[in-house]
Structures are given as structure tokens and as C-alpha cells.
């Protein structure tokens, strides 16, 4: 478990640094964008809590197949991924109904993934597939409904939206593969490696998303600050 603790601590530190970096962004952007921007800061902040508790060895439960599942991780995802979808929807200026539906699908994806992780056998895989379908629904909203909405915005916002969308879709598509390869799935990857990969992916996805969004907002508002560009 010491390896796991290491990775979780790594995740905690990474998220904490990311949160600080993003919190600094409040000073750079317009006051009127603070509300939306706070979503970006809230995401790694939530992850800091989750990883901190996991590093302390709290919250792992045993699955039907005897593998460990970290409830906090799913709680983290259940909170943060809809926040990301919300930010994307707000950035695109999509209708709130559409945003709520996509948030719902995103939450459902996480819940179903959690169910798939906990339950063994066919039922687990079924939930996993259902979760994947829900995630496809989220992608659909991001590709079409949000995209239609963002066409009304200016060029830089469209570019930022597309970049963030591609970022989320590409990185989030890796999660299902990890899920499959992890002990809760096929078990080709042991829990320590899974923890490392997921930690890294989480940091990249959450902090990276925030930094790209910050950079994009700075570009959009005309405040060209090259310091914010380097996402990693």
C-alpha cells in the first residue's frame, strides 16, 4: 500500500499546485468572468480533498471480485466531471436545458462506472457499457448542441471551446481503457499502476483543462500573457 500512498500523495500535491496556479488566475481575468472561472478552480480543489483522503488510506471498499475500489475517486469524478461539462456548456453559451441534460449524462456515466467497478461479472460489464453509452451522449452534446451554440461566439471563443472539447474528449476517452485494464476490469494492470496512471491523468485533465481555459480567456480578453500558455 505504500506505493499506492505514494501515488495518491503525488496526486494530492499535483492537484494542490494546480489549484494554486489556477487560483492565481483570478488576478489575471476580468471580474465578470470570476463566477465561471471559479468552476475551474473548484475542480482541482475537490480533487485535492479526494486525493488527500485517499492518501490517508480512507475510503477504499472491497468489490465483489475482491478488488479495492476508491469511493472518493468516484465522488471526485461525480463532482468534477459535470463541472467541466458545465464550464464547457457555459463557454459555448448553450441552452441551460442542454447543459443540464449533458451534466446529468456525465454524472450517470460516473455512477454507472462506479456500479460497474463494484459489481462483478456480466452485470458489472453491462453497467460499464451503459456508462460508456452515457458518455457517448455527453460527447454528442459537446460535438453538436454546444458546437451549434458556440458558432454565435467570436473566433477565439470557438477556438478555445474546440480545444477544450478535444482536450476533454481525448483525455476522458482514456479513462474507460484504464477502467478496462484496471483490476476492476480485466486486471491486466495492477492497482498501483492504475493509481499512478489515473492520478497523472486526473492532474492533467483537471489542471490542464483549467490552464488552457485560463489561457484562452486571457487571449479572448486580449490580455496576452504567455506565462499562462504552458499547460504542463
Amino acid at each position: 500500500m505504500s506505493t499506492l500512498t505514494t501515488w495518491f500523495s503525488f496526486g494530492t500535491v499535483g492537484m494542490a499546485l494546480g489549484t494554486l496556479a489556477l487560483a492565481y488566475g483570478f488576478k489575471l481575468i476580468d471580474e465578470k468572468n470570476h463566477k465561471r472561472y471559479s468552476i475551474l478552480v473548484a475542480v482541482p480543489l475537490i480533487a485535492v480533498g479526494a486525493y488527500g483522503l485517499m492518501a490517508l488510506g480512507i475510503s477504499n471498499i472491497s468489490t465483489q471480485s475482491g478488488e479495492s475500489v476508491y469511493v472518493l475517486r468516484y465522488i471526485d469524478w461525480l463532482l468534477t466531471t459535470p463541472l467541466h461539462v458545465l464550464y464547457l456548456g457555459l463557454l459555448a453559451g448553450a441552452a441551460m436545458g442542454t447543459i443540464y441534460r449533458s451534466i446529468g449524462l456525465m454524472a450517470l456515466t460516473i455512477v454507472l462506472g462506479f456500479g460497474g467497478a463494484v459489481l462483478d461479472g456480466i452485470l458489472g460489464w453491462l453497467l460499464y457499457i451503459l456508462g460508456s453509452v452515457a458518455f457517448v451522449g455527453v460527447i454528442y452534446y459537446a460535438m453538436y448542441d454546444f458546437d451549434d451554440a458556440v458558432q454565435q461566439k467570436d473566433d477565439s471563443t470557438v477556438a478555445l471551446y474546440r480545444k477544450l472539447r478535444a482536450f476533454l474528449i481525448v483525455l476522458w476517452l482514456i479513462y474507460p481503457f484504464i477502467w478496462v485494464l484496471a483490476p476492476v476490469g480485466l486486471g491486466l494492470m495492477n492497482i498501483e499502476t492504475s493509481a499512478l496512471v489515473i492520478s497523472y491523468l486526473d492532474i492533467v485533465a483537471k489542471v490542464g483543462f483549467g490552464l488552457i481555459a485560463l489561457s484562452g480567456q486571457l487571449v479572448a480578453t486580449g490580455t496576452t500573457d504567455p506565462a499562462g500558455v504552458t499547460a504542463d
Partner: peptide, 11 residues
Amino acid sequence: AVINLGLVGVT
């Protein structure tokens, strides 16, 4: 590696 490549590709 896939994550990083994805990151590179996306960014």
C-alpha cells in the same frame, strides 16, 4: 504515453 500524446495532440 497515450495520455501525453493525447495532451500533445490536443494542445
